[in-house]
Nucleic acid binder design. Structure first.
Lengths: 149, 149
DNA sequence: CTCGCTGCAAAAAATTTGCACATTG
DNA sequence: CAATGTGCAAATTTTTTGCAGCGAG
């Protein structure tokens, strides 16, 4: 999906859900559409200003909430919290958490050869009502790698 | 791994890496070991106090940093940031991000039938130096579900 | 005894809230 | 025009930093 397609789609989605189409919203959508990286509310605010736009940081927060609710953007990083590594070895592929949105309870799983859909089944079998599913892989991209940061 | 095992292992790990074993550190480890949910630094601080312990929030922050570095705890949620949903449909299994630790660049992938290890290969093929891999599944656990929160 | 770690104090940054005015539909 | 959304001001919360003293090894 191109940047323009994303913008058009996002606006349509907002409209469909009864939200108003306003300049601040368009500006935020545009910044996100063009972004090559994950942005913080602050980043977005700065980007709008840099593009000769005008917006308050507070509005950025509120708009992001709206966009998230409308399913237009993702909040990368489910939440902020620490969890003890209960599983002995997760040096290889990594670890997996099932986090309850309401109480924060989590379960750690080892997933190496299961597919995502199998994983979903397991989670549901464990009694969780699934709401979201995110896989975040962190590392260094090619350019940062060569810059040896 | 039981709560006690976790504590013992964590202390050994710290010792092995040349860190000192101090009361504040033990207290934080103990809270995390007993926790049934993901905790914020604030939560941890409160829990230590509730257990008749004594610690400063600032120390909690610093200790969490140490524990994370030592591989004893995980920081759930790779970071705070928003990303446009570029992929058309991710209503089902979810979406996946590859986020560069340094510049925040990300790539969104669709993963339904790939296994985690296959995914890792893909990521590496895309030029990323893999550092961490987290799958976070969010939903409602059984008890919150019945409480219909 | 020495260096690392902690507490205290304070600054800086991030996020939330209340309210009057502007704007969309 | 009516209701929604925004900006501004300010409070609140979260996180970071500097420094002197305590305590683990």
């Amino acid at each position: 999906m191109s940047s323009n397609e994303f913008e058009a789609r996002a606006i349509q989605t907002l409209r469909d859900q009864g939200y108003r189409i306003t300049m601040p919203r368009i500006q935020v959508i545009r910044v996100l559409a063009d972004a090559q990286s994950v942005l913080t509310p602050n980043d977005i605010h700065a980007a709008v200003l840099a593009a000769q736009g005008r917006i308050d940081v507070v509005s950025v927060y509120r708009i992001l909430g709206t966009l998230e609710e409308a399913g237009i953007v993702h909040h990368v990083g489910l939440g902020q919290g620490y969890a003890a590594c209960r599983l002995a070895d997760h040096s290889d592929v990594g670890l997996e958490h099932v986090v309850c949105r309401s109480c924060g309870t989590f379960v750690e799983l080892v997933v190496a050869e299961e597919t995502a859909s199998q994983l979903v089944q397991q989670v549901e079998a464990a009694g969780y009502a699934l709401e979201g599913f995110t896989i975040e892989v962190s590392g260094l991209c090619t350019s940062c790698r060569s810059a040896s940061v």
